[in-house]
């Protein structure tokens, strides 16, 4: 029962990482994990891919965090005359209403980051809870939850998001909800198998025999072993979510009250021949941000989920 593929998600080979019968590899014992964490950083830092990813991601997060410092003006305000090409005053030019494209790009980072992190965070929570409960409870509950997991996996994510946003009206909340509700399947599987693997290890059994509470077991043995791979998986959701948000905005389904790169690209469509800067800069911003978080997510997964390689983000 594994290897249902997932549209646009870290797919491959995960049957082995996630539920593989065979040698299922619970990640080391507790102290080993801690040591690995310390060692990880060195290994991590030695990979150029990881470093580039980290740098770009940090840059992205900084821009998003410091919008009010970098571009204090409202990105929707009429800062200049329409269609000014890039200049000293408006670095990235102005759009059809004289709004500063640079301010839009900076403020858009915040929106994209929000969407990416919200989707990843929500799917992480849902996935961990469902997977954890399934793993612990076993039996009927496990069966039911795994059915549910399968269901969430066979729903076509992009199309569902498109439909929901189009029908219920644009708004970041709707978008984040649909994406989160269709993105937790892999996380659930990984955390479930993490729980199963750890449970079967002798020391847990021994600990149980010694009378320590299940909650304590969860905290001391299970969580440390599953949290890292799950977080790594979640990091891969970020880029995908950003791209989907941009794609839906491009189709005219974005939230007009919040500046976003997708919204800017959609707006730029009407003026591609007149004002190239309106579409070039937001497009580049998306590419750089997604590249950064993907590289980082990739690197994280290389460490924590070495056998589950990402199929990458989606459009």
């Amino acid at each position: 029962m594994a290897r249902e593929g997932r549209a646009a998600e870290p797919v491959t080979l995960r049957e082995r990482a996630a539920s593989g019968p065979g040698p299922g590899r619970p990640r080391g014992s507790d102290p080993a994990g801690a040591r690995a964490a310390r060692g990880s950083w060195r290994r991590f830092a030695s990979s150029p891919v990881a470093v580039v990813g980290l740098v770009l991601t940090v840059l992205f997060v900084l821009v998003a965090a410091l919008t009010s410092v970098i571009a204090p003006t409202d990105p929707f305000s009429f800062a200049g005359t329409p269609f000014e090409p890039p200049s000293a005053k408006h670095w990235l030019g102005t759009d059809d209403l004289g709004r500063d494209v640079g301010a839009g790009v900076v403020h858009g980072a915040r929106t994209s980051l929000f969407v990416g992190v919200a989707v990843a965070g929500a799917s992480l929570v849902i996935g961990t809870v469902v997977g954890g409960v399934a793993g612990f409870a076993g039996g009927k509950v496990d069966d039911l939850l795994m059915r549910l997991t399968e269901l969430s996996q066979v729903l076509p994510r992009f199309f569902l998001a498109l439909t929901v946003v189009a029908l219920f009206g644009p708004g970041l909340t709707n978008m984040v909800l649909v994406l989160a509700l269709t993105s937790w399947e892999l996380t659930a599987r990984v955390s479930r198998s993490g729980v199963l693997a750890v449970r079967e290890l002798e020391y847990v059994t021994a600990a149980e025999a010694l009378g320590s509470s299940p909650w304590r077991n969860l905290r001391t043995h299970v969580l440390p072993n599953t949290i890292a791979p799950v977080v790594a998986l979640a990091s891969l959701q970020v880029g995908g979510a950003i791209l989907i948000e941009a794609s839906l905005s491009f189709l005219g389904l974005g939230d007009p009250n919040v500046i976003s790169w997708g919204y800017m690209l959609n707006n730029a469509q009407s003026f591609v021949r007149r004002a190239w800067w309106m579409s070039v800069f937001p497009g580049l911003a998306i590419a750089v941000a997604v590249l950064g978080v993907n590289l980082l997510g990739d690197a994280l997964n290389d460490f924590w989920n070495p056998r589950s390689r990402s199929g990458g983000a989606s459009a």
């Binding site: 290897r3 249902e4 593929g5 997932r6 549209a7 646009a8 998600e9 797919v11 491959t12 080979l13 076509p156 994510r157 992009f158 199309f159 794609s247 199929g311 989606s314 459009a315």
Partner: peptide
């Protein structure tokens, strides 16, 4: 497997 499982993604593109 990828090709099979990415079908949704491919349609989206």
């Amino acid at each position: 497997t990828v090709i099979g499982s990415q079908i949704g993604f491919m349609f989206a593109g």
